[in-house]
């Protein structure tokens, strides 16, 4: 056991001064396919009313292109996420457009979310600082925005996963929190 700990420390040292894990390690451990789909459960905690709102649905994505995010409960809606923004074709027109010039920090969040689901580690590395730990084939990562302006929107993202990402927790600066479980 002691030996194992020593190895872990050495591993950590070899991986850089700050974090225990690196983006390249995450890239190695995870094997996220170019196309993938599944179901999700989302829980949004709203601080001001001290309550959580739950929604569920299915998703699938094509790396680098788009994510289809279909909410089934409690409302039905299909969202299409691209690096450029989020649109909903409920009524044939986009409801949510994330225009970088209007609100760059929120747009950055959209980009980061897209990168998270499709495991675009390069993109993440340029915007976020990584810390966390690896335990066998499971890992836990905390990502914090490098950019102070982005920190006004969210403070950190927690990721849990193995071969695939299993859980994403987004901590907003307002105190709200979004937890998404992927299956």
């Amino acid at each position: 056991m002691k030996r194992l700990a020593l190895i872990a420390v050495l591993l950590a040292l070899s991986c850089g001064a700050r974090g225990e894990i690196s983006f390249s390690q995450l890239a190695q451990i995870t094997g996220i396919p170019d196309k993938h789909g599944g179901s999700f459960v989302q829980e949004k905690y709203l601080q001001v009313v001290d309550a959580s709102l739950e929604s569920r649905g299915v998703f699938d994505y094509e790396r680098g292109k788009s994510i289809r995010w279909e909410i089934l409960e409690p409302i039905q809606s299909e969202l299409l996420l691209t690096p450029a923004g989020i649109s909903s074709d409920d009524s044939g027109e986009s409801l949510l457009q994330l225009d970088a010039s209007a609100n760059p920090a929120v747009a950055a969040l959209g980009e980061i979310f897209f990168a998270l689901l499709t495991a675009d580690w390069e993109m993440l590395e340029s915007h976020l600082e990584l810390s966390g730990s690896i335990d066998g084939d499971k890992w836990h990562a905390v990502l914090e925005p490098l950019e102070s302006t982005t920190r006004l929107v969210f403070t950190r993202v927690e990721l849990h996963g193995g071969k695939l990402i299993e859980k994403i927790v987004l901590h907003e600066s307002s105190g709200d929190r979004t937890t998404i479980r992927l299956d």
Binding site: V48, I71, I75, S88, L95, L170
Partner: peptide, 24 residues
């Protein structure tokens, strides 16, 4: 309806940061 729908999506959609308080 469109406004309500948009508000619901920001609550149940995955990315919505920056939304105001549900009460205010």
């Amino acid at each position: 309806q469109k406004i309500t729908r948009k508000a619901l999506l920001s609550l149940f959609g995955p990315v919505s940061a920056g939304a105001g308080s549900i009460v205010d």
